[in-house]
Design a protein around this nucleic acid. Structure first.
Lengths: 225, 225
DNA sequence: TACCTAGCTTAGGAATCGCTTAAGTAGTTG
DNA sequence: CAACTACTTAAGCGATTCCTAAGCTAGGTA
C-alpha cells in the first residue's frame, strides 16, 4: 500500500513517514503544494495525507479539488490546525474523505488510514489467505500448511499486495508503483527476481498447487483454488 | 439516498431524522440495538448512523461487526459520547467509516454524510458477454460455454474491443487505431491474421454459432444471437 | 467465364517476455 | 572489520508472441 504525505512542516512529515514505514506502507513525502500536486496527480497512491495550509500555488483544498477534477479518487485525509466547523466542512466538501486536527495521536491516524484503505477493496482483513497460505498483516507472520515462512520486508509487501488483489493479475509496472516508493525506480526485472524468491519460499517446498501464477502478458496473480 | 439511524436517545434521533429529511434523504430510525441490527441487515441502506452505546444485545460495535460479517458494506458513521482515543479506534477498526463525538454540530454531520455518499462504487462493465462467451476485464479471464480460454494480450484486447462494439462492424483501420498504440503501424493483414487466431480459440472448438463474423467490406463484428 | 478485390491461411523471422544465475552494493551485526 | 543479509542489477537462455510476406480462396461484377 502506497501513501503520499504532503506536509510543509518537515518535522511532522518525517515523523509520519517513519511511523508509516514501520507499518509497512511505501511512503513518499512532498514539502510544498506544487510539488505535492504533481506527485498526487501522476503517481498511483492508495491514500494521501495532505496538510491544509501549504506554501506554493496549491493549498490542501486546491490539491484535493484538482485531484478530483482529474478523476483521481484516492482517499484523502486532511490535516488541519484550524478547528472551526466551517473549516472542517469545506475540507470535506472539497473531496477529502476524513480530516484530523493537529495535534493528533498517531494511533488515531493509523486507525483512520486502516478505515479508509479498508473500503475500496473489500473488507480489509488482518489475515489474508489463499488456499492453505496465510499472511497476518499485524504480526507479519506468514504460513503455508501451518508451517511458518520467513519473508523479507519486500517479499512480504509483495505477497500482501498480491493477496489483496487475489485472482486478478497485476503487471510489473503496477506492482512496482504499489510496492516500491517514488524515488526507488526499479527495473521490471527486479519484480521477476522477487517472484522467484517468493516461489522458492511459498510454493516450491510444498506439495499443493502453485499459488503464485504467471499470466503471460498480463502479470502475476495468486489464485486461491 | 436512504439512511438508517440507530440511536436510543429519542430526542437526538428525532432531531437527526428531521434534519436529514430536510436534506432530502429517506430516513428510518431504530431506537435499540436488536431492532436496529435487524433493519441494517435486511433493508438496503446507502448509509447508517449508529450510536455506540445501545440497549439490547447488540451495541454499536456489535452491529457493525455483524453487518461486515454479513458482507454488507454500507458506510457507517458512529456516534459516541466517549472521546478517548482507544474508544475511537476500536470503532474504526470494527468497520466504521467515520465517527463523531457527541455533542456535534449538525453541519459537520451533514458534510461527513456527503463525503461518504460521494464515492459511488464505480459501476463499470467488468464482464462483457456475447451469447455463451464472456470476458472479464479485471481478471482477464475469457470463457465460452463455461470453458476457460487462454488468449494472448493482443487477442484479448481485440476481443474486448469487438465486444464493446457488439453488433456493429468495425473496419480494419478502426480496429488498428483502437487496439494497437499510436506509434505502432501495422498492416491491415495483421488484423486478418489475428481474426483467425481468435476464431481458432473462441469459435472453431465449439458447437454453437460462430460469434466472430465478417461483414465483407465493412469489417468484423461479434453478434450475440 | 474471366477478372478483380477482400479476406483467409500458412509459415517463419523478429521482437518481446519471463526465468534464472551470478554478482555487486549498502546497511547491519557479531 | 569481517560476515551476513536484503536488495537490486546485469546478462544469457528458452519460449511465446507479434507481425509480415506470399500464395490462396471466395464473393462480386462485367
Amino acid at each position: 500500500m502506497r501513501i503520499l504525505i504532503i506536509e510543509d512542516e518537515h518535522k511532522i512529515a518525517r515523523a509520519l513517514k517513519k511511523a508509516l514505514e514501520q507499518e509497512n506502507y511505501a511512503v513518499d513525502v512532498s514539502f510544498d503544494g506544487d510539488d505535492g500536486y504533481a506527485m498526487a496527480t501522476t503517481e498511483p497512491y492508495d491514500l494521501a495525507i495532505i496538510d491544509r495550509m501549504l506554501p506554493g500555488e496549491y493549498d490542501g483544498i486546491g490539491i484535493i479539488k484538482a485531484m478530483r477534477k482529474a478523476k483521481i479518487h484516492t482517499p484523502v485525509i486532511m490535516l488541519t490546525a484550524k478547528g472551526t466547523i466551517a473549516d472542517r466542512t469545506t475540507g470535506l466538501d472539497a473531496g477529502a474523505d476524513d480530516y484530523l486536527v493537529k495535534p493528533f495521536a498517531l494511533e488515531e491516524l493509523l486507525a483512520r488510514i486502516r478505515a479508509l484503505l479498508r473500503r475500496p477493496i473489500e473488507v480489509q482483513q488482518v489475515i489474508l489467505t489463499a488456499g492453505d497460505l496465510s499472511l497476518n498483516t499485524v504480526t507479519f507472520e506468514v504460513k503455508r500448511a501451518d508451517k511458518p515462512i520467513t519473508l523479507t520486508s519486500k517479499e512480504f509487501a509483495l505477497l500482501e499486495f498480491l493477496l489483496r488483489n487475489q485472482g486478478r493479475p497485476s503487471n510489473k509496472d503496477t506492482i512496482i508503483s504499489h510496492v516500491w516508493d517514488y524515488n526507488a525506480d526499479v527495473l521490471p526485472n527486479t519484480v521477476e527476481v522477487y517472484m522467484k524468491y517468493l516461489r522458492q519460499k511459498i510454493d516450491d517446498p510444498f506439495d499443493g498447487p502453485h499459488l503464485l501464477q504467471t499470466a503471460r502478458g498480463f502479470g502475476y496473480k495468486i489464485e486461491s483454488n
